[in-house]
Each structure stands twice: as C-alpha cells, then as structure tokens.
Simulated assay, not measured.
Amino acid sequence: MKLLSQDPALKRLSLSNPIHFLALGFGSGLAAKAPGTFGTLAAIPVYLLLAQLSLPVYLLATLISVLIGFYICDKAAKDMQVHDHGAIVWDEVAGLLITLIALPAGWQWLVIGFVLFRFFDIIKPWPIKWLDAKVEGGFGIMIDDVVAGIFALICVQGLAYFIQF
C-alpha cells in the first residue's frame, strides 16, 4: 500500500473542498489502514445527532445522504481519476445511517449495527459483490453500501425483535 503522501490520486483532492471533505468522510478516509472502517466510525457522530430527531426527519436525512452521495462519490472519483478509491468513504457513512434506522436504545445496538454493516460491506454476499463489480460511477460506489446497510438493518431489526438488552 502506498503511503498517503505518495498516492497521486489523493494529491488531487483537498479537504478544504466541501465535496472532497464529505467524500473522504470528514477526513476519516485518509486512514492508512481500514479507511472503510474509519469512515463507518465517522458516521457515528452523524448518527448520534440525527437520532435526536423524529423518525421521519431521520429517514429524510438518510435519504438525502444517499442521494447526495451519488454526486459526492462520483465527483471525488472523477477528481481522483480512480473509480472507488478506498479513501472515498461517504458510502460507508450513508450505509451505516441506513443500518441504524429505528435503532433500539442502547449502546449495544449501535455496536451490533456497526459490526453487521462492516460484515456485509466486507464480505459482500450476493448481490452486493455483483453490484460492486458491475455498477460504475457514483451510483456504483454507493449502491453496494446501500444494500449492505439494508441487509444489516434487516438483521438488526430481526435481532431486536427477539432480543432485549
């Protein structure tokens, strides 16, 4: 793995550019190792802020994060001249927000949601792997994480149905 300072794609971005700042998950995507995990961690404060709002507002904010993510990820990838560079982690932010929809109260559920989302994002069961390989552009960068978030959401809600902490 190239050092961050040696990566020519990253030299084409600037954290002072709001689109780049968001695409890089507030800078978390610049982590030398496991940028997707760090991007997912960066989504937690966003979730904690949004979780204070009503469910309809949370859903709207999550939808907006996905829709603007198509553009943000596409623009950053084009600016980097690399499709789906590992530093682009807005898709992880949006994916975790999907996972945590109507999350039961308690830090345990946040940890479970985080772990399940990372599991689906890393393992990429069908159709996630297919989408990741076949769909291009900002939509392609986002869609595998959107589906991973939906899978993780279903699992979290299923567990919540049967388990009470």
Rank of each mutant, 00 (worst) to 15 (best):
A148T: 04
V93W: 03
I143R: 00
W90D: 04
H85Q: 08
I163H: 03
F38P: 09
Y161T: 10
G158D: 01
S54P: 12
E92A: 11
A77P: 02
W90V: 09
L49N: 01
L3P: 14
P18Y: 02
H83Y: 08
D91T: 11
K11P: 06
I122W: 02
C73W: 00
G86L: 04
G25L: 03
K2L: 14
W107Q: 13
F139H: 02
F120P: 15
A31M: 10
G106C: 06
L96E: 05
L50R: 00
S28A: 15
W90E: 04
F26V: 09
D79I: 01
P35H: 08
G95M: 05
S16M: 04
L30S: 03
A152E: 01
W126P: 13
Y47D: 13
L116G: 12
H20M: 00
K134H: 15
V66I: 14
Y58V: 03
I154T: 14
P104F: 11
D144E: 11
G95D: 11
A102H: 12
C155R: 00
G106V: 08
G27S: 08
L131H: 04
V57Q: 00
K134T: 15
F21P: 09
S54N: 09
V82Y: 03
I150F: 08
W130C: 12
I88S: 05
K33E: 02
L100F: 15
K2I: 13
A23G: 15
L60E: 01
G158Q: 02
I143H: 00
D84M: 12
G29I: 08
T99L: 12
D7W: 10
L60P: 07
K33G: 09
I44F: 01
W90H: 06
Q52G: 11
H83S: 09
I143M: 08
D132C: 05
I101A: 14
L53M: 11
S54G: 11
D7E: 14
P45W: 01
T40R: 01
S28Q: 04
G140S: 08
A9M: 04
K11N: 13
E136A: 11
I19N: 06
A31S: 15
W107N: 14
L10K: 13
L50I: 13
W109V: 14
F162Y: 07
R12N: 15
E136G: 10
L103V: 12
G140K: 06
M142P: 15
A76D: 07
V115H: 01
K33D: 05
A87N: 04
V46T: 05
C73L: 03
Q157P: 09
F38K: 00
F26I: 10
L59M: 07
S14T: 10
I150E: 01
E92T: 14
I64L: 12
S28W: 07
F21W: 13
A102E: 13
I122Q: 07
L159E: 01
L49K: 01
I128E: 08
Q81Y: 03
G137S: 06
G36P: 08
L53Q: 06
V66E: 00
A9C: 05
A32V: 15
W126K: 09
A160N: 02
K33T: 14
L10H: 06
L59P: 07
L48S: 06
A31G: 09
D74A: 05
L53E: 03
P45D: 07
V46N: 00
F114I: 12
G140N: 10
L3Y: 14
Q164K: 05
I64G: 06
F119D: 09
S14I: 10
V146F: 02
S65D: 03
D121G: 15
G25S: 10
M1H: 13
